[in-house]
């Protein structure tokens, strides 16, 4: 990867070019070394347009849109707490459980056809997996996201706000579930598939 596409470098350019935007670099531990940039949802659209039109970056081609499902996780940590029992201060060990809510993630792989470089990887995360699954759609920036965002909606339930035609694409219209989610279990043989009827 050239220096120009270094994740830190792109982050600095975005934060300078799109005021108010907040970008986090997500490191990638695998030998591929493809680090990605986590965008804040409010400015994602502006950042995408900025990356597409930036004269040096010119990321005019969005190759891949992926939905990823990260389940709720629970972390346990042991902490020492001071307690006052009968006027005597004692130290006791307590396990505290923290629930980290899961989220749905959309990953975009950008390349430049004009400059022949890439990839720059963008990520966006929803607030949680159940109620707030909205993300801004980048289809108005790159038409190539049209079908793939529909697919992420269909299989993961990410609602892309601003998508021109957000319908199910691979499953049928009445299908109720999101089959690519990690907690989805297909119905047993003979049991009808859950459907919604409009």
């Amino acid at each position: 990867m050239s220096d120009l596409l270094n994740a830190e470098e792109v982050k600095a350019q975005i934060e300078a070019g799109v005021p108010g935007s907040h970008v986090t670099v997500i490191p990638n531990g695998s030998p591929s070394g493809q680090h990605s940039l986590l965008l804040d949802n409010e400015h994602a659209f502006a950042v995408a347009s900025f990356l597409r039109d930036h004269p040096a970056l010119r990321l005019d081609y969005c190759s891949l849109v992926t939905g990823v499902d990260w389940l709720d996780t629970e972390t346990t940590e042991k902490i020492r707490v001071k307690k006052v029992v009968d006027g005597v201060e004692t130290e006791a060990e307590e396990t505290r459980k923290t629930k980290v809510p899961g989220y749905l993630e959309a990953v975009y792989h950008l390349f430049s056809i004009e400059k022949k470089h890439g990839p720059v990887i963008l990520r966006m995360r929803t607030a949680n997996r159940t109620g707030q699954t909205q993300l801004p759609s980048l289809t108005p920036v790159w038409r190539s996201c049209e079908f793939q965002e529909r697919e992420a909606f269909d299989l993961y339930g990410i609602v892309f706000v601003g998508h021109p035609d957000l319908r199910r694409i691979l499953m049928w219209d009445g299908f109720a579930d999101f089959p690519m989610r990690k907690d989805y279990h297909p119905p047993a043989d003979g049991v009808p598939v859950a459907e919604v009827h409009a």
């Binding site: 990638n28 531990g29 695998s30 591929s32 891949l64």
Partner: peptide, 10 residues
């Protein structure tokens, strides 16, 4: 067992 991470090959 690849290391934790991700890769895109095309």
């Amino acid at each position: 067992r690849p290391k934790v991470g991700e890769a895109y090959g095309r």
